[in-house]
Measured scan of single mutants.
Amino acid sequence: MPSETPQAEVGPTGCPHRSGPHSAKGSLEKGSPEDKEAKEPLWIRPDAPSRCTWQLGRPASESPHHHTAPAKSPKILPDILKKIGDTPMVRINKIGKKFGLKCELLAKCEFFNAGGSVKDRISLRMIEDAERDGTLKPGDTIIEPTSGNTGIGLALAAAVRGYRCIIVMPEKMSSEKVDVLRALGAEIVRTPTNARFDSPESHVGVAWRLKNEIPNSHILDQYRNASNPLAHYDTTADEILQQCDGKLDMLVASVGTGGTITGIARKLKEKCPGCRIIGVDPEGSILAEPEELNQTEQTTYEVEGIGYDFIPTVLDRTVVDKWFKSNDEEAFTFARMLIAQEGLLCGGSAGSTVAVAVKAAQELQEGQRCVVILPDSVRNYMTKFLSDRWMLQKGFLKEEDLTEKKPWWWHLRVQELGLSAPLTVLPTITCGHTIEILREKGFDQAPVVDEAGVILGMVTLGNMLSSLLAGKVQPSDQVGKVIYKQFKQIRLTDTLGRLSHILEMDHFALVV
């Protein structure tokens, strides 16, 4: 994948999101292997301009796509893939009243899908469409860049269908997702969380590099694949309309690839034109409109599966009536509230959605109805927002919020430890010299600072030695090549209790 991002070429006709291997024109390309080798690009942008032909009021008969309808489940399912879809609609009884809503608040519980998330729908649909058009064949390999849930859905379907599955996901995604993927037989590649989507090191860039190296491999490409919004247009939206008897006044959905909100909203605009569509985008993402909503100094966020630093091709923002931004604290607070007060075992993005819903639905009156999409299960986040310690460490809970008995030293300040200034190293000294210094002084790690004293990161003896043994660096290389740029900081005025929580999850903390 090139470091400079080429513009994806656009073909003359058809839909841009065809499933299957992508040609340089962004659509299915038939021909000899030699032709494909000559024409197939190194990668295709996940934010390529959409060429979708959908228009409100256009006859369904003019759609270029294969459409399906929700099917009634048999008493005995032939395999677990038949437990994807037909998820329950559940009334939220307490939270709406707590925040003064007059309307009825309903939750579409997508964590009841077989793999635990709304992404099971698009995973199965992308595979079925690729099999139907002859792209996927027995023994082929599926590769997908994902925040985890699409990966789980694909790995689940691949396990049943017999495909090899490789999932490329950023490091910030939970260990629970990784464990589930491994249990399903998927191979996992992790990428830096802070890598831009168009960087060769991003999950998108690495996935395309693997595709170019592995024979008979395919990126189904949830960011561009029409099967993504079509899955929701054909099934999720129809289920909502049936469950609500066609009567709903507002739908609120958090947005990642945009397939969920695009597919549902398009069908609702056709069948229930008075329904307002509300999009939820986390602070630090750029999906919301108008652009002024996205202006923030924050560039990272903890909530998973929603928000991006690019506009995915499948996201149709014209069908969203209003956007709201959400933050991590309210997302996790509301997710825990949904679990504790409503018994809905949902993930953090569901918290984002409901946090926005109780604001947006203030305009609705008694007798009206708001539906929220709860995308995934708490299963993926047992060591994250479900953990009091994690919430404390991230600053989303305060010590006084917890009532468990603490040891005698818990409320003492870090400054009472009488710490001395640490050994520091410059980023320009060599790895070999740094190892000598650390061994001589008896230290395992040291902060790396520039000549102005600005902290650049941390270097550890173990990481340097393993990097040297693996051949990633040489003793003569500058130590700046092996620094940890993500590390926890703590102030002298913070409590030892807070430091204790940090050290339970990290090997060190830097006192500043």
Rank of each mutant, 00 (worst) to 15 (best):
Lys82Ile: 08
Asn149Phe: 07
Val204Gly: 07
Thr260Arg: 07
Lys267Ser: 02
Asp129Thr: 07
Glu4Cys: 12
Pro59Asp: 05
Leu81Phe: 08
Asn113His: 08
Arg121Met: 02
Thr68Gly: 15
Lys83Thr: 09
Gly14Cys: 02
Asn212Tyr: 02
Thr135Asp: 02
Arg121Val: 02
Gly11Pro: 02
Arg164Trp: 07
Val168Thr: 02
Lys137Phe: 10
Ser175Arg: 05
Ser3Val: 15
Ala130Pro: 02
Arg196Ile: 09
Asp129Ala: 15
Asp79Ser: 12
Lys247Gly: 09
Ala155Phe: 10
Ala48Ser: 04
Val204Ile: 02
Gln222Arg: 04
Gln242Gly: 13
Pro138Gln: 06
Phe112Val: 04
Ser19Glu: 02
Ile92Arg: 02
Leu28Arg: 04
Phe99Tyr: 15
Leu181Ser: 08
Gln7Leu: 06
Thr260Leu: 02
Leu77Thr: 02
Pro6Lys: 11
Val204Lys: 11
Gly258Tyr: 13
Ile240Arg: 02
Tyr233Gln: 06
Glu40Cys: 02
Ser50Arg: 06
Glu62Tyr: 13
Ala114Cys: 02
Arg18Thr: 15
His22Tyr: 08
Ile264Arg: 05
Glu29Trp: 13
Phe111Ser: 02
Asp133Ile: 02
Gln222Leu: 05
Glu131Leu: 05
Pro64Arg: 04
Cys272His: 15
Ala107Thr: 06
Pro215Phe: 12
Pro33Gln: 10
Asp129Gly: 02
Pro138Trp: 11
Cys244Arg: 07
Ala69Trp: 02
Phe197Tyr: 06
Ile143Ser: 02
Pro49Trp: 10
Gln222Ser: 02
Ala237Phe: 02
Leu241Phe: 09
Ser254Ile: 02
Lys108Val: 05
Ala8Leu: 12
Asn225Phe: 04
Gly96Ala: 12
Met89Ser: 02
Met89Trp: 04
Ser254Ala: 05
Ser227Asn: 12
Pro170Val: 02
Asp234Gly: 08
Ala38Gln: 04
Phe112Gly: 02
Leu124Pro: 14
Ile152Val: 08
Cys244Ser: 02
Gly31Trp: 13
Thr68Tyr: 06
Val204Asp: 02
Ser61Glu: 14
Glu201Trp: 12
Lys271Tyr: 06
Gly115Ser: 08
Ala130Cys: 07
Gln243Leu: 10
Ile95Asp: 02
Leu136Trp: 08
Glu171Phe: 02
Ile122Val: 02
Met126Val: 02
Asn228Met: 02
Lys75Asp: 02
